[in-house]
Write a protein that binds this DNA or RNA. Structure first.
Lengths: 326, 326
DNA sequence: CTGAAAGCGCTTACAG
DNA sequence: CTGAAAGCGCTTACAG
């Protein structure tokens, strides 16, 4: 690979001049510029980003820390981040942390040593300090973890309210909410939205805990239906949980949505592949990813942020696991 | 962040000595070593990988080029690659190419400028030359594209044979194969496996083309069932296609697996979330990803490859869309 | 065993 | 307008 020296020699100028035309900065005569441009083309020269990194202490790379790309919520998010990163000339490094504090620390160290320009975080294991001390731009995605870092999340509370109201409008009288893990902000907010609506309207309800995995959802749903056979609707805190509920319900020969309505949360592609297709509170996942990448790049490039926190709207995706009596 | 100079000053030695203890290479006195180690600890010094990259022309990063992380086959693959990369101290850059030659070229250029150490490719758009001229280690994953580059793939032909034989053993007498795109090696091999078995055994069959998307699968299946209502089994070239077939079949009130058996290919998590759960020819996806990462890192680290090409075995995952008369 | 020096490929004051 | 030089943070011959 040719270096800037080769170009300089070929164009009969100094490396400084080559650098100037490369960066379009500083004066350079028409003639010199033409020679340099020709040399670059002739030699098929590409500036070496490592050398640039060393000087600028910046890398044109951003890190995306997620719990696990294998969780169907994340691929679309990652895709969006990557798409906008590519547009702006950034490259993205994906880090699966498994919410494991040691892995997070290991990644952070590696990324820092590479002059990573910024981080998008969908994780809240390490305390906020660990990130803020890095001294690089951050964006929190899905979960807010410090009011000093810009955040992109969706209106979990409002979405949960709408879901619950919709089940009630459709005639359900005994609604179960299978909530996600405690201290995970979105799970808490969805729970709160559910609770407020059923209490305001005086609807019989039951809340049970669950992981965001299908296996635990099936176990929980099994127990729930045995104990409370008259439950006529489930609001699941995620689509994966809803998928588990659906499976158990069908195995127990419940008619869906006649005997039991089910509504999920997230809007992952899985939902529409199920039969019956899952009604869900859809988050604009791609948009959230894209928004967070833009927010991060703006900070990296020192542009002013007109909005610091985005709370995007959810929309109910009406499909086949709910009735529409309303 | 402290640099090697700070450490040298603190330890009262030269930077050369610090570098020697960092790299455990060259002679250094017990005493000097201790001082340096203490300095490193006291200052919390981490060597800068960018500077190292510049000197060594290597980056401790590997690139993973995939068509689209949003396709459910890839997250698990990516996860595996990332897991083993982390183990060996490498970081992975994910590139969604959409099988678009311009995007691939753009990524290749960016990665090359960063001294990427090697590439795992699951794509075959660019001609082999474009990659081989990069002069860095490569591994082809899922699809072979040159006999000079180590490849990890699964026994698509054999898997397809087994699937077809299984459907026949279970009594199916008119089998449809919905194949994937032409010139995609795995799709071709699966087709070939299917064709050979039905012809050997003299079973009525029909083959139709399809993309690896659920939408096109549903369209194809719809047409297929209308034209040939007596089809009693479908071998789909991927699980996504199978999911589409399943949906259409259920909408047409076919009893599964009584009226119609369905078997997919891939073994993605979606399969078991469906109801009935999908029988499929499962590839060891995680293993394939891990294998390819190891194969790549071995090349990067100039270790001999005892095996250059891996063809891993598939296994039928018996679930609910097939009978088991056999 | 150890340090001074050159070099990896760039960029940017500083002179001129 | 242009070039020589220093510097980004390392590593590694080369002397000693």
């Amino acid at each position: 690979m040719p270096t800037i020296k080769d170009v300089a020699k070929y164009a009969n100028v100094s490396v400084a001049t080559v650098s100037r035309v490369l960066n379009k900065k500083g004066y350079v005569s028409k003639e010199a510029e033409e020679n340099v441009l020709k040399a670059i083309a002739d030699l098929n020269y590409k500036p070496n980003s490592v050398a640039r990194s060393l000087y600028h202490k910046t890398s044109k790379m951003i890190g995306l820390l997620i719990p696990d790309i294998t969780n169907p919520f994340f691929p679309e998010l990652a895709r969006a981040v990557e798409d906008v990163a590519l547009t702006y000339g950034y490259t993205v490094v994906i880090c699966n942390t498994d919410e494991d504090i040691r892995k997070e620390a290991q990644y952070l160290e590696a990324l820092q040593q590479k002059y990573i320009d910024g981080l998008i975080l969908t994780t809240n294991q390490l305390s906020a300090d660990n990130y803020e001390n890095l001294g690089i731009p951050l964006v929190a995605l899905d979960r807010q973890f410090s009011n000093r870092v810009p955040t992109v999340s969706s209106k979990n509370y409002e979405g949960a309210r709408q879901a619950t109201e919709y089940l009630i409008e459709n005639g359900s009288e005994f609604i179960a909410h299978i909530r996600g893990p405690y201290h995970v902000k979105p799970a808490d907010d969805r729970y709160q939205g559910f609770k407020n609506v059923v209490e305001e309207q005086g609807i019989a309800h039951i809340v049970v805990d669950c992981d965001f995995t299908m296996a635990s959802a099936m176990e929980v749903a099994q127990g729930l239906f045995e104990k409370y056979p008259t439950i006529d609707a489930v609001f699941a805190s995620s689509d994966i949980i809803a998928a588990g509920v659906l499976k158990v319900a069908k195995n127990s020969n419940k008619q869906i949505p006649e005997d039991l309505q089910i509504i999920g949360f997230d809007g992952i592609p899985l939902g529409e592949m199920l039969t019956p297709a899952l009604t869900t509170v859809a988050q604009p996942i791609y948009k959230m990813g894209a928004l967070s990448a833009r927010l991060l790049i703006k900070q990296i490039e020192k542009q002013p942020l007109d909005v610091k926190n985005y709370e995007v709207k959810t929309t109910i995706q009406y499909r086949e696991t709910t009735r529409s009596d309303a």
